[in-house]
Design a protein around this nucleic acid. Structure first.
Lengths: 240, 240
DNA sequence: CGTTTTTGGTAACCATGGTTACCGTATTAA
DNA sequence: TTAATACGGTAACCATGGTTACCAAAAACG
């Protein structure tokens, strides 16, 4: 790993346009970003393929933002196996949930999937009082809060599905949510059977079987991607 | 509902000592809190028992902090039934995840379980630039980030358990986590069977049955609250 | 245009875990 | 101390959903 503190300015000039597409920096113009960075003084590091970007158990160094290349976030589960949590590409963040949670160490390991460049924002710096608390700095904090709350909401939503015990309940809840979003009884599924089974944490044949049962009972009707809810009330009574 | 903007100062003087025990205001002294409140200008409202504090679908008014009494956070699920999400007492917050997530409306309803007093902090105000961006204001933002990230982490942890399909896997994972925390093969359970069953989202008799099986196989040993891991490797191979 | 791959429906078999019900032992309250 | 209640182990029965394997239709690819 090569730390390029000296080249930071040059690095930013090159990446500043891409970075404003990154969620953390949204609503901040490239010009303002320069100011923000002079406040934050982030560290940029370059990694070779398969190099360790962060090691579980070691001191937390700050939220990471992938500038180029890809990283893999892995977690060692209780059985001692490494499982992949996420693959993050250019512009994506990792460790955002740990930055402010009071944990002092990385609970996950991050490995360079390809050669990559990563920027680290120390948590303390984000909320520090720079002399001129610039508007953009405030925007940064807002963005951070938005990202973390958004993540929490997403997890919450996912949890709601997994807490439902019966497969029929999961399917009904999912369909009703889609129905509400679409605003009509006929709509397109946003996922393939495969993906939906994954999302609901059930097996694909079981999902298929149950959906067909519901079709045979006249509650729904479907062909491939398209779905039609025929008995809304029946469906509602199944969601639970 | 009676809004008492005029009495805000009096209200605070009375509650300021309790509030500094509230997570959002931790590390802020009562004196500093006065300053912070003069920045934030929160609204305080008084509700009678069973009165609606927030209505799902209506405009989001800000994070709520219960000053006295208790509120119930309820959500209408897909089937149209109201389910209780949380009961919040004095010093506890609600709506903290929605404040910054960009949702414009309350996704839940909040009802006064007893007569109660609730303080609302508008999301925008928390991150606003008051003239003298006081140290305490920064602390407030830090606390907010900490609370929301903590919530996200907790949800994440819960999700990990629910994603495990086999009951044995859930139990093993849970025990290994407890073991790691305790640092010894013998430790006390932090939950009763009932609560653990709830946490793992399984039925109590099934949990009991499986734990006894594991005991009969010689992997663990237990009596009521106390647990001893006898075959660590076996347990690890079951967690998954 | 034919071939390969992906997608999804179907069926049989069986393991897992929910349900209910009962009972003994702690724990708490009166 | 006794009564009431909470807690947890146990067993029988059975519904749900996982597994595997196969097939047909659709889509992607050469």
């Amino acid at each position: 790993m090569v730390t390029k503190n000296g080249d930071v300015k040059k690095m930013f000039r090159k990446w500043i346009n891409n970075l404003s597409e990154c969620e953390l920096f949204k609503k901040i113009t490239p010009e303002e970003l320069n100011l923000v960075f002079s406040c934050l003084k982030p560290k940029v590091s370059v990694y070779e393929k398969n190099e360790l970007v962060a090691v579980a158990g070691e001191k937390f160094t700050g939220t990471g933002i992938v500038m180029t290349g890809e990283v893999v976030v892995t977690k060692e589960n209780a059985a001692g196996n490494r499982v992949i949590m996420a693959v993050n590409g250019s512009g994506e963040m990792f460790g955002e949930m740990f930055a402010f949670s009071g944990e002092g160490v990385w609970p996950v390991s991050v490995v360079a999937r390809t050669a990559c460049t990563v920027m680290f924002l120390p948590a303390g710096k984000i909320i520090c009082n720079c002399e001129r608390l610039c508007a953009s700095h405030r925007q940064l904090i807002t963005n951070m809060l938005e990202i973390v709350s958004g993540k929490a909401l997403m997890l919450h939503r996912k949890l709601e599905y997994l807490t439902i015990k019966s497969l029929r309940g999961k399917i009904s809840t999912f369909l009703l949510e889609q129905y509400k979003r679409a605003g009509s009884a006929t709509f397109m599924m946003s996922m393939k059977r495969n993906e939906l089974a994954d999302f609901l944490n059930v097996s694909r044949p079981a999902l298929s079987r149950e959906m067909c049962r519901m079709r045979d009972e006249g509650v729904i009707e479907f062909h491939r991607e398209s779905i039609k809810i025929k008995e809304l009330d029946a469906l509602k009574s199944m969601a639970e």
